[in-house]
Amino acid sequence: MDEARISRHGSRARLWLAGGWLLIALLAAIFAPLVAPQDPLAQDLMLERLPPFWLDGAEPGYWLGTDSLGRDLLSRLIFGARIAFIVAFAAALAACLVGSTLGLIAGYFGGWADRIISRIVDVWMAFPPVLFAILLVAVLGTGLSSVIIAIAVIDWTRFCRVIRAETMGQSRMDYVENARIAGYGRIGIMLREVLPNVVPSIVALLSLEMGIAVIVEAILSFVNLSISTDDPTWGGIIAEGRLSIHQAWWVLVFPLVTLILTVLSFSQFGEGLRARFDPVLR
């Protein structure tokens, strides 16, 4: 009883911390032109490799310093957040829609539907995901939509597997038979009785998947396969930072920290939401 209370307390703190960071990042992304102190693309070789504000030689207005081309790091991170969030939402939603629908069908109807979907998932998961993504983008061509499609195409299996297992468990509950007794059809039961009981898992997975999408996008940018190199992306900044690690560590460290915080927040936010809004866990 007490353990439950402690974990609920913990989950609330987790929810607020993670949600808070995501909200800040999201607002920064939406209002990037207003909040960014500098133009993220403006180069000024006079200002190259300025350190962050607390070190000697820092310039006011360049809070986190500049990169080797003299571009403001904070502004680049803020504009990078835009791309990160667009990819996170779009790719995760697409993967979620496809994967959850197929998982629900496989888990609820079983039989042939399940066998076919499960086989496809098995084959799909045999591909190494990152290589698969690089291959896909190479074929589709670089650009925001390619990145989103690539992530969705690779990661729907994650939803499919979890939702299928969850649905199978729920389908064995008596309330599913109860709904048949009440006169509901199969599709009606799936949507009315089973779906609401797997929604918390979908929400948690969706949030986790957003974090994963952010990472995959960063990886693709890192290998220069995301969108055009002009637009600042977190992965792209990390790739540049790696080259000047000995002269300007901050160009590598700040985007890495931002990335880690964001990914961690997505997964914690999902878990926290689930713990908070699941009447069964409550």
Partner: peptide, 12 residues
Amino acid sequence: FQDPMSSLNPRR
């Protein structure tokens, strides 16, 4: 049903 726990949908 035998088990009223499992026969009532927890989310309704």
